[in-house]
Amino acid sequence: RATLESAKEFKKVVDTVAQILDEICLIANEDGITARAMDPSHVALVSLEIPRLSFEDYEIEGEKEIGIDLEAFKKIMNRAKSKDKLILELDEEKNKLNVIFENSGRRKFSLALLDISASEIKMPEIEYPAVVMLKGDAFKEALKDADLISDYVILKVEDNKFIVETKGELNDFSAEFDEDSSALISIESQGHAKSAFNLEYLLDMVKGIKAGDIVKLYLGTDMPLKLEYSLGGANLTFLLAPRIE
């Protein structure tokens, strides 16, 4: 049984993960809740971690695997109201996850669990030549700009600048974040990094980002992008395979 202070914040987590995956197996143990899975095409990976400390209350015995249909969970979470607390309660007898919104009253959905097991995927240990921290909404806006021009985007780090660019058949777009840019928090690089990525996936991954959030990007040349940010007490990490010329 786990209680989160803001159901509405957690809704964003579920929305974002549901953009990429159809189902997920949550692992709940005394450290908190984690989950990791690749999308069916193996282009993207989502890793979710909600540390025990993010919960207002958290009770567990042993370790539980909770298989969830994300489309159904998303629909339920969309009913969260702004002051609702969220209680997630595993009913092992009925094989259901109770999703409870608590405010002046108490609304309970019982979500049927899926018979899936947790994936054994470990994050690959990749050495990245460049790490960029920037304001999440600035990154999201640059991706939306690029989306007007093409279906892919090039993310580059060169000369202590982070660049988002794309070329269409007729039109081009580029956004530069250098040390003078208030959106750029930090940039560490050993040499250049340049990789191209599918924009649809990237836009799905940044869906939950809002003003004030900070994203951390790990980049290389023709390497997967690693993207991290925190949302509603959850740490989200995404990997996205590059497009290669």
Binding site: H42, V43, P124, I126, A196, P224, L239, A241, I244
Partner: peptide
């Protein structure tokens, strides 16, 4: 034409 890679290549 650019080719979309999968993550499998990078998991080795």
């Amino acid at each position: 034409k650019p080719k979309q890679m999968t993550l499998d290549v990078f998991f080795k």
